[in-house]
Design a protein around this nucleic acid. Structure first.
Lengths: 223, 223
DNA sequence: CCATAATATGACCAGGCGGTCACATTATGA
DNA sequence: TCATAATGTGACCGCCTGGTCATATTATGG
């Protein structure tokens, strides 16, 4: 989740920032809608009103363009999650989970196409460097929650009969599924997350986190 | 989840059952590997050693072939889940969840390519009649667990402060994610479900269900 | 045995793809 | 101003796709 996956050509970097943004945005929209293999460079250039030759002056090939889009995605995710952390390192474990969930919602709201790209990468074969892309995101989650869970367990706020690895799995599964349900209505299990008001959404999140807390907290702790 | 999505041509029904099976299997493998749009009929006929013209004597077009494959998928899923139900309707809610999870594992073990097709349908746009296909499977889950949760709630084995809809969402999310992690190792959150022995896998399932139970059960019930 | 129906075949079609390149246009700076 | 470098352009290429169809092969039954 650190270094860039690919370097655009110098020509691209010389472009006006708005134009760069427009290109990344249009490419992201196409990859989000079609997935990697079906995405059409012809569509992208048509949408942008530039020629195909120009696109190839900016990026070596389809793969480089795609990886650049993914780079933007990971950068934005990092930004959102970091912004959600209140930072003093002493927060309640489940409060952090709640914060991350809210950050995820905010991210999807402002960059729905990036989240779609991510979902496509998860379930499509033959995406270039797919394993690497997926691990960048998954590892981020594991490395983020893992130490938090370890510490929480040591401090006795997590049941000792469940390994922290499993705690992280459950947390990760729930968060990921909630976000997927938010982004793809047919995965929301009838909760109708998609069109929900912010207040109702926060209620849903709170009660979801409450269930996790009850299930994962030692039984001698009050709710 | 009841009627067939599509009727193959009579010519296909006249074929020897082994040959029919071979065709469905090869098609499922290709759709699983490539998704609907990228799947190549040329590949399928090459794999089968038959001519493309023949395939078009069996099915009207690519869509009809795909829908027939999906029909087989839903049929098999139904079969597995039904076989897992012990049937007397008086089982513990969470035991049923455990049974369904085990049925899912068994299904993936014997038909990994069908599960991949399902995952592809979930995350691909432009799959023919996609909404309908997805709802067939999702509705099956909701309609299966919904009444069970309602009854369990009435009987006081589920917390009354959580609507059964949310219980079903959580259950569904956990089961689905567990099976996805089993089928796609990068979703297993580091649990390494894929290569796991049956015994260890059952332990994982038991402790997963135990967490759900603790989280969703009324607090005045013992563990 | 042979006429007829059923089935199998693969060359072929139009269309879309990623990628190339000779050329047109614009920017640069002496 | 003008030579040169940088950038923009879209017709074109080879390849693959889903789908067609005239023809070859096989099965059927009188």
């Amino acid at each position: 989740m650190d270094t860039q996956l690919v370097q655009p050509k110098q020509t691209f970097m010389n472009l006006a920032p708005e134009k760069r943004e427009g290109i990344v945005r249009a490419a992201a929209a196409e990859f989000a809608a079609q997935g990697y293999q079906r995405a059409s460079l012809n569509n992208i250039v048509k949408q942008l009103g530039i020629s195909k030759g120009s696109l190839y002056q900016y990026f070596d090939n389809k793969e480089a363009l795609f990886l650049h889009v993914f780079d933007h995605f990971t950068l934005q995710v990092k930004r959102y999650v970091k912004a959600s952390a209140t930072g003093n390192g002493r927060e309640d474990f489940f409060d952090v989970a709640r914060q991350v969930l809210l950050a995820g919602i905010a991210f999807i709201d402002s960059h729905p196409e990036y989240f779609q790209v991510y979902l496509k990468v998860l379930f499509e074969r033959d995406v270039p460097r797919r394993e690497e892309l997926v691990s960048r995101v998954r590892l981020f989650s594991l490395e983020y929650f893992g130490p938090l869970a370890d510490r929480a367990r040591e401090q006795g706020v997590l049941r000792s009969d469940i390994p922290s690895q499993k705690v992280v799995f459950i947390l990760d599964a729930m968060l990921d599924r909630f976000l997927q349900g938010y982004a793809q209505p047919h995965l929301d299990g009838g909760l109708a997350l998609a069109g929900m008001s912010a207040d109702r959404l926060h209620d849903e999140i709170d009660s979801m986190v409450a269930v996790l807390r009850t299930g994962l907290q030692p039984s001698d702790m009050g709710e």
